[in-house]
Simulated assay, not measured.
Amino acid sequence: MARAGIWTFPPSTERSADEAAEYLTRLRQLLRWIGVSEAEMEKGHLRCDANVSIRPIGSTELNPKMEIKNVNSIEHVRHAINAEVKRQIKEVEAGRKITSWTLDWDEDTQTLSKMRSKETEADYRYFREPDLLPVRLDAEEKDKVLAQLPELPLKRQARFEKEYELPTYNAEILTSERALSDYFEATVKFYRGEAKQVSNWIMNDVLGILNERGLSAPELQLTPERLAKVIILVDNKVINTSTGRQPLRKFAPKLLRKTPLRWSNTKMERKWSWAGSLVR
């Protein structure tokens, strides 16, 4: 736990900036999925301090690390790490020694600047916090906690690919948010047809509405049942695809609510509601 009671995670990787970005993407997804945080990096809910060091191929010893502080975007993390790796390689190849510094990343200029020399453990003056006692969980307690977790995103993505025969890309998009994946499954149950058809409507039309307005799935008020009815009407050739899309666009303002729908604190299930009639 860092200053001001904010939790920090110290994961490490010895691969690439892309892997670091993927890790942050999955971490943010998981935090949102289980309701721990909205994890909006730009709003300060989640930040990244990236420590970068290099070593020659075949060597087991890393050069001194440089810490890039308080990066507030996953893409910025990717850019900053790549820039620092290139800089360190250039320094070593020129015969210069790497000295530890804390760095600041400027996304606008794509440059790194020195903030201060890197502190060592002695500089931090680490000592045990007397008011924080150790927490030890036995196997039974751990199993009890794990049993309360919902189906997590990667597991649900794999299930969507197998159970609904969705392409990996579709399954990944539909499980990017828990509310969106729940919405998809609920629509499939009402539709009772090929899940890929529901996937196409959600990805091409429903997400289009949300993206146009910079909103997320919890703010959607078009119920799964109503969407399923639209798809069925198109399938039965009562209306064509273009006509089926018109009410989604026409009633778009009515399909969204200012206050996002929330998870139930007791049953962990979605509470879908409807503000107007789309299909009668």
Score class of each variant (00 low, 15 high):
187 T>C: 09
36 V>A: 14
3 R>K: 12
209 I>W: 09
158 A>N: 14
126 Y>M: 08
279 V>I: 12
104 D>H: 07
146 L>W: 01
24 L>W: 01
125 R>C: 09
251 F>C: 03
88 Q>Y: 09
258 K>P: 00
83 A>H: 11
168 T>Y: 13
182 D>L: 13
102 T>E: 15
171 A>F: 04
247 P>I: 11
128 R>M: 12
33 W>M: 03
110 Q>M: 10
152 L>Q: 01
187 T>S: 07
207 L>W: 14
232 I>C: 13
28 R>V: 09
203 M>E: 09
218 P>M: 05
79 H>T: 00
241 T>I: 03
241 T>A: 07
91 E>Q: 15
205 D>H: 14
221 Q>A: 12
187 T>V: 06
200 N>Q: 12
30 L>T: 07
33 W>C: 12
262 R>A: 10
66 M>Q: 15
184 F>D: 03
42 E>I: 15
145 V>W: 03
4 A>L: 07
114 K>R: 13
270 R>D: 02
125 R>P: 06
57 I>T: 11
43 K>D: 10
104 D>M: 02
180 L>N: 02
200 N>A: 09
15 R>Y: 03
42 E>S: 12
265 N>S: 06
119 E>R: 13
146 L>Q: 11
136 R>E: 11
204 N>V: 06
162 K>M: 13
184 F>W: 04
224 P>C: 00
193 G>V: 03
190 F>N: 13
92 V>S: 03
26 R>A: 13
278 L>C: 05
254 K>C: 02
260 P>V: 01
36 V>I: 15
76 H>K: 15
150 P>D: 01
256 L>M: 08
212 E>S: 05
73 S>M: 07
232 I>A: 15
235 D>V: 00
201 W>S: 00
77 V>S: 03
240 N>T: 11
183 Y>G: 00
191 Y>N: 05
59 S>W: 02
186 A>P: 07
167 P>T: 00
20 A>L: 09
173 I>F: 14
56 P>N: 03
184 F>C: 00
242 S>H: 07
142 K>W: 06
121 E>Q: 12
30 L>M: 02
241 T>S: 12
67 E>K: 08
2 A>G: 14
136 R>G: 05
59 S>D: 15
7 W>Y: 13
89 I>E: 08
164 Y>G: 01
140 E>F: 00
59 S>M: 08
114 K>L: 07
178 R>E: 06
146 L>H: 04
94 A>N: 09
90 K>Q: 09
193 G>W: 02
254 K>G: 06
8 T>G: 11
244 G>V: 07
243 T>G: 10
130 P>N: 08
240 N>G: 14
276 G>M: 12
35 G>E: 01
194 E>P: 00
9 F>L: 15
191 Y>H: 15
70 N>Y: 05
98 I>G: 03
162 K>D: 09
154 L>Q: 15
135 V>K: 13
125 R>V: 04
232 I>D: 13
23 Y>W: 04
278 L>H: 03
110 Q>V: 01
276 G>F: 02
180 L>W: 11
62 L>G: 08
125 R>T: 06
228 A>E: 00
170 N>A: 08
180 L>Q: 04
58 G>K: 03
96 R>K: 10
138 D>V: 05
86 K>H: 08
16 S>R: 04
225 E>R: 14
132 L>V: 14
21 A>F: 01
185 E>F: 00
148 Q>R: 13
279 V>Y: 10
195 A>Q: 06
42 E>P: 01
38 E>L: 05
31 L>F: 09
132 L>W: 08
174 L>P: 09
176 S>H: 05
271 K>I: 15
275 A>M: 06
